[in-house]
């Protein structure tokens, strides 16, 4: 207990531990911020050749329209390895389009079109859900995503 002698003495204690501590905290925050900035920048970049899917949210179901005009309600069929760009909007209240397994999340706001993109890497069946409270059946506003083998 030699070093803390300074710490105990409140009237003339040293302030350097606190400065070092603040320095460490700030360094960590800079690291977190820089990493997050970089990944967000990479993730947000939409590939040129992404196929467009129009997503429309409504209390309490999802409808999808492919680029070729095919419409689907409550389910979506995509091809493995193809980049897709979603244009998301809503007809009534705010919803949030979410494919948890692919970390796709974007609010569906009436009067606005929000975009997000992803590539379905693995074939299979995935859940889609609403992640913004939208009323009575919010808990059941789900849809199925089928990724077909390329």
């Amino acid at each position: 207990m030699k070093a803390p002698e300074n710490w105990i003495d409140m009237s003339e204690h040293s302030h350097w531990p606190e400065w070092v501590y603040i320095g460490v905290v700030v360094a960590l925050l800079v690291y977190v911020g820089a990493e997050a900035w970089n990944i967000e920048r990479i993730v947000e970049h939409i590939p040129e050749d992404a196929e467009l899917i129009t997503v429309t949210a409504q209390q309490w179901f999802w409808s999808f329209e492919h680029e070729d005009g095919t419409k689907e309600i409550g389910e979506l069929h995509l091809k493995q390895g193809v980049p897709y760009k979603f244009e998301i909007t809503s007809k009534d209240v705010i919803h949030s389009f979410n494919i948890p397994d692919y970390l796709v999340l974007m609010d569906a706001v009436p009067g606005r079109i929000n975009t997000i993109w992803f590539v379905p890497v693995d074939a299979g069946e995935y859940e889609m859900q609403c992640r913004e409270y939208c009323g009575l059946l919010h808990y059941n506003m789900r849809a199925k995503l089928y990724v077909e083998k390329a």
Binding site: E18, I22, L29, G33, E40, R41, M106, D107, V109, R112
Partner: peptide, 29 residues
């Protein structure tokens, strides 16, 4: 963040959020 904000706006508010941390950390210290 999920309401369709631009990258720049998100960055600004992330920095603003992180800026609150040192003060809270000073209390813990």
């Amino acid at each position: 963040y999920a309401t369709g904000m631009t990258f720049t706006v998100k960055t600004v508010f992330m920095i603003g959020t992180l800026a609150a941390v040192p003060a809270s950390a000073m209390h813990v210290f």
